[in-house]
């Protein structure tokens, strides 16, 4: 299940192997990468954009750029690379609609995992990774979690959240910060490591 597990190389090609085959023009490699990442990309784009056509466009753009770009994303993590592209692409679409994107835009530049494929989170399957993040998020107090989700997936500004919840702006800032601190702590705890995610 895990594409980067060394012991499974013979049966499951790694992202790096697939990417090299992709660059060599092998359609089978493109299909394999698509099977592996398209549902993640499309699911995230759909969550942010709430528009199937736009999510399709983002998905298509990302895979075409993977095919054509000289940059080798497998020097880091392909999963991180495509999710970052997904958020950036979705943010671009939202910007085109004229939405308020200040915080979301800032977050769009953050790589999900800057620590590369050797990090613990890259060594687990997407399903497991996804489950751990959802669990971690579930441990965060409701208002903090909702604030994070509204900003991350909804493109809401802090001011808009403050207006919606009828609380001071400082409270929203605090929710977001505390929520993120707890998310980091929960992820660290669920992975059982000494700090590396």
């Amino acid at each position: 299940m895990n594409p980067d597990e060394p012991g499974q190389k013979q049966t499951t090609p790694t992202d790096r192997q697939l990417f090299q085959d992709l660059k060599a023009g092998q359609t089978s490699a493109l299909n394999a990468l698509y099977e592996r990442y398209a549902p993640i990309v499309y699911g995230l784009a759909l969550q942010i954009l709430k528009d199937a056509q736009e999510a399709e466009d983002v998905t298509q753009d990302i895979f075409i750029s993977l095919c054509k770009d000289e940059h080798d994303p497998t020097r880091g993590s392909l999963g991180s690379y495509v999710t970052t592209l997904t958020r950036s692409g979705s943010i671009d679409k939202m910007r085109a609609r004229g939405g308020k994107l200040k915080l979301l835009e800032h977050w769009g530049q953050i790589m999900p995992l800057d620590t590369g494929p050797s990090s613990l989170m890259e060594q687990v399957s997407f399903e497991e990774r996804s489950e751990r993040v959802r669990e971690a998020l579930g441990q965060i107090p409701e208002d903090q979690r909702q604030a994070l989700e509204l900003v991350y997936f909804g493109g809401f500004s802090q001011v808009e959240i403050a207006q919606q919840y009828k609380v001071p702006l400082g409270t929203v800032k605090s929710w977001l910060r505390l929520g993120l601190v707890k998310l980091r702590q929960q992820l660290q705890s669920s992975l059982g490591n000494n700090g590396s995610i």
Partner: peptide, 23 residues
Amino acid sequence: HVKASLGLMAYVPQPVSPPSRVQ
């Protein structure tokens, strides 16, 4: 590490297979 934690929010949505026309 905190940046990475925030980035992991990307893995929260359920994966959804795009329509076959995308592929």
